[in-house]
Simulated scan of single mutants.
Amino acid sequence: MTALADRVAELTGADEATRVFPVEGGDVCDAWSIVLRGGRHGMYRKVFAKTRTRPPYGFFPAEAAGLTLLAVTGTVAVPDVLAVEDDLLVLEWLEPGEPTRDQADRLGHDLAALHGTSALSYGTPGRPAFIGPLPMPSPPTEVTDPADWPGFHAEYRLLPYLQQAVDRGGIEPSDARDVERLCDRIDEIAGPPQPPVLIHGDLWSGNVHWAGGDAPRARLIDPAAQGGHPETDLAFLELFGCPQLSRILAAYEEVRPIEGRAERVPLHQLHHLLVHAVLFGSGYGAQCGAAARAALAG
């Protein structure tokens, strides 16, 4: 831990690291709270560091790039990226707070503004991307036609993870066949054409950091930022429950109402469920089948 703390101090321009503590909560990486002294930022400050032994190529740079993409829109709040290397990411420390109504209302408005930001293409062509520990494939060239989203989603966000789930025994054959049926018919149930917009891409409730302090504002963390469909972010928020969810969605719809969204929620949750089936097994595989059948039933 001392070597890590000294490395973070050097990367951030501090004189020294005075304390380092492990932080609980991460399944993919080790996390640390590090107190730094001196340098251009003053006497003492705390930072957050994430490490992973032998991460896949581009793992932490992809997260840093995603945070930067979200930040430059000026729409949503994210932690500042302080340093990034192949096996290390250093971020601004965020004090935790309660999920207040005001933060929820602001978050709904912020997400609506984020989803008004055009993306160059669906996915992340030309750069690595990950959802949790799993690589996210993308088209080799830009895909921009709104009518192409269903095909993109099936080819790059559903079928690759379905195959991995099958290979790992994370989904039963009958459920896998229903997911394949959905992919075959996705054009029929995808809803109106949607041009690519910037989305968080992994917006389950654990990636919403409710802030403390004098002017609290919820931050988005651990993005899989990409060009995608705005309904995906909203469906992910609903998947495992989220504090103040009804207020977030109501505030979002004040700015950006989406007709018919509720019937498409199972379609947009399926990607995340397939990722979980790959990582955690057949309990999620059964949910994948159920989501596919619900989407097909419309």
Rank of each mutant, 00 (worst) to 15 (best):
A3I: 14
E263L: 05
A290T: 14
A176P: 00
L203R: 05
G285F: 02
L107S: 07
A113K: 13
D178F: 10
G123R: 01
D110P: 10
I34V: 12
H276P: 11
R101M: 08
P128L: 04
I131R: 04
E172F: 09
F240A: 10
A31H: 03
A83G: 07
A190S: 15
P22K: 12
L94S: 02
H271Y: 15
P55M: 01
G108D: 11
L4H: 12
A113W: 04
A83S: 10
P135V: 06
R293T: 14
P135T: 10
H109G: 11
F21S: 09
T68V: 11
L279M: 13
R293W: 10
T232V: 11
A190C: 14
D167H: 11
A154L: 02
A290I: 05
D80S: 14
D178K: 13
G13H: 07
G108Y: 05
E172T: 11
G228D: 06
T144K: 07
G39F: 09
V143D: 06
Y156K: 04
C288P: 00
P193G: 07
D202F: 00
L120A: 15
E155A: 13
E253I: 01
D86Y: 00
A176W: 01
A297P: 01
A17Q: 04
M136Y: 02
R52N: 01
E253A: 12
P96T: 14
